[in-house]
Amino acid sequence: MAAAHRRAPDGALTHQRGHIHWPRFSLVFIPALLSLALLAFGAATGVVPVALAVEGKQGVQVTAKSFDTEGTATFPQFFQTQDGEHRTLVAVTLKNLKVQGLCVSTKVNTPVGHYVLRITSPDSGSEIKAGDVTIGVDTIDSLGFDGQQVRVNYGAKTPDGTPTDTGSRGFVPLEIDNLGFDLDLTIRWVVANQIHLNGLTLAGGLEQHECK
């Protein structure tokens, strides 16, 4: 081995190669870890909003007890798969999304079995909020509705028939009570901004169950 140190003419010990000055390392590393812990705590409690963008082939199961949002769909967008195939999809944007009782799970096949990662939030109390969620919908594979009351263009009116509900031009009032639906979509990508997470529980393992 080559000598790591040598004596300078004035007698001082010097390095022949660059080296890590560990006290200086801790000077940056420890504050960075503390900042990270603060950010993680803020994200877990909903104080710090985070942004996520996911695309690919991973199957994800999503269930929610309740959610509140405003949805819009834009013109079809185009993307190209790795094998060169051109496909179209519809970008659906959900604004001011609020979710309670969320369960998200994904299953990965490993040599030792199916590994399931599951994220859940409480059914009541704290809710997850997102300012802007855009979903690239490739296909709608199945859709099942269970609405106890669906009324179209039937907004609240005064006794003389004047509508009291107002909306933007071109929008039709749609009133649905106690809606439950089972939706099976093929989604190519999801982008979510301004996410406020609160009370999330993360669990992973070979014994975990997927969301149902």
Partner: peptide
């Protein structure tokens, strides 16, 4: 952090 803490050769110990 490793990049910041690196010291070039021939620096006095």
């Amino acid at each position: 952090s490793l990049g910041f803490a690196w010291s070039p050769p021939d620096t006095e110990i």
